[in-house]
Design a protein around this nucleic acid. Sequence first.
DNA 1: GACGCAAGAATTTGATCAAATTAAAAGCAG
DNA 2: CTGCTTTTAATTTGATCAAATTCTTGCGTC
Lengths: 226, 226
Amino acid sequence: MDDAMQGQGETARKVPTHELTYARLRDMVMFGVLAPGQPVTIQGLIRDLDAGMTPVREAIRRLTAEGALSLQDNRRVTVPRMTKELFEQLVHARLAIEPKLAELAAPKVTPALIARLTEIDAGIEPAIRAGDVQAYLRQNHAFHFALYEVAGATVLEDITRSLWLRFGPSLRAVLGRYIDSGLPDRHAEALAAMRAGDAAALAQAIRDDILQGVEQVQEALAAGEA
Amino acid sequence: MDDAMQGQGETARKVPTHELTYARLRDMVMFGVLAPGQPVTIQGLIRDLDAGMTPVREAIRRLTAEGALSLQDNRRVTVPRMTKELFEQLVHARLAIEPKLAELAAPKVTPALIARLTEIDAGIEPAIRAGDVQAYLRQNHAFHFALYEVAGATVLEDITRSLWLRFGPSLRAVLGRYIDSGLPDRHAEALAAMRAGDAAALAQAIRDDILQGVEQVQEALAAGEA
DNA sequence: GACGCAAGAATTTGATCAAATTAAAAGCAG
DNA sequence: CTGCTTTTAATTTGATCAAATTCTTGCGTC
């Protein structure tokens, strides 16, 4: 009874280092900290993440397996560059899977979940106004996956996670950019659909949200690079 | 001019050990060599695959990232057990993706590909008659992915690979079992659709092939375990 | 004499291994 | 059955080796 949360005393030796290292590197990719084409060196990560060689190595292997990083023929690792074809494939896959996840989640939505999602969504608008795109991306991510989680479809959820990961580097293009907050809030529509218990409407709201986000990224990419 | 293909002399140092190790371990999972629930120890693989610790470690991490292996809370690795829910999810995902891949591949099918697929398919029947289920599984895998490859949809292809991987351990149940060769050959139907250039028919053939395979696995599972 | 190219040295980075540390599991005594 | 000891395996670090890239130097040419 009293030993809950033990081991927190010193250095929090609960989760292994390689898990932590993976989580940190994953977030760097997911939220656009790393630029497309940027070389990712083992030695560099050892310094930056303050970890040993093995944990770093394993984190890189996991991320490459998920498509978040790519190995060049000369055994070096880089952040993958986004191509038009890849972008389309990723969007297509997201549109195929996420509305389905929302639909599966719909009947399992509880008032508690709605409350939590509302809370997350409430943090989004201020982040946009403050120009904190980093925070915006994180909140948006939290919103979507908190919903998908209750669908109980681990397979689709994992796939979706991988897709978001592969979008990450492109989000960097949005980072320094103005975000249009005048657009209709799809999260609000999603929440309304949840309160109404309307699965189809929820799926549609997610679809629209994806399309809206995609559009913003495309604009940013068009403005940023050739 | 003379140094092309160098380094092949001794031990063929072209592909790194961790790639080889990964490929071997992946195939063990993919083709049902490892049983569901079976513990996978690093030390064991070091012995069995005759590799160092680092390559083994990385292979395991990659496979876990792909869902082919799972980490328990007590930092041990096992082959995931198949549950009814997981099985349904995997089938659902395969049915959603693979016919689509076939459809995308259809317009890019060349006579050369048809010839190659025909050759692969020709090896299947003898394998079944000889009771070599291992060979059957490999040929079946080769057939599907040779087709999917030409679709040029890397994202969907990667996802499919992961799905097949997660089915692997269940295939073990089929390994010692009689395979009904009296069933209609869906590969033949697929080939016919390719020759006719009928994308819809090809997609349908793949769908049927999946369902047929699923049925065989389900029967084997029902017979084998509770 | 300046420029460009090429050969080779030095540095950076990745791959692999072996040893030490730490945590979990199994065996054993009470 | 509980608590302690032994043992096994995973984690992590550091060292060593190999490959690749970069930098430098020297030669030849214009």
